[in-house]
Amino acid sequence: MMRFLDGIIRWLNIGTAAAAGLVMVLMMLHITLDVGVRYFFNGQIVGTLEWVSFYYMVALVFLGLGHVEMKNENIRVDLFAQMMPARVQLALYILACVLGLAFFGMLFWQSLSDALRATRRGEEAMSNFRFLIWPARWALPIGFAGALLAILANLGRAILRRQAL
C-alpha cells in the first residue's frame, strides 16, 4: 500500500515536472520567434512579455517544485549533520519534513484561496491590451501540493527505513 502511494506521488510529480520542462522549451521558442520576427519583419509577437511573466515563468518554477522535493534536490547544508550519529540525522530529517509540511502547507492554503478568488473575479492584468491571468494562479497550489505530497512520501520512506534521506 505504502509503495503504491509512493509510486502514485512519484508519477504525479514527474508529470508536473514534465509539464514544466515542456513550458521551458516553449518559452525558449516563443522568445526566439519574437526576436526573429523583430529582426526580419520589423514586427512583434504581441504579448511575449505577458506570456513569459505571467505564464511560462510561473508554471516553470512552481510545477517543478514537487519533483525537486521528491528527489531531495533542495539546496541544504549537509556538513554538520553528517558528523552526527545516524539517529540524530534521522531526527533532523524528520524535523525538516515537519517544517516543510508546515511551510508548504501554508503556501498551499493561501495560494489556493488566492487562485479561487482570482478565478471568481476573472483576474486580468492591464497591459497594452487586456490579459487574463487567473489561470496562471493555479500553478502555485498545484506545485505546493506536489511538494507536500513529496515530503509526505519521503517522510514515510525515511521512517520505514529508519534512515535520513
Binding site: 520589423n42 512583434q44 492591464m126 497591459s127 497594452n128 491590451f129 487586456r130
Partner: peptide, 13 residues
C-alpha cells in the same frame, strides 16, 4: 509610420 513605440496602457496603444 512604422515606428516602434513603447506604450503603457490600452488607449495610447
Amino acid at each position: 509610420r512604422g515606428k516602434r513605440i513603447r506604450t503603457a496602457g490600452s488607449a495610447v496603444s
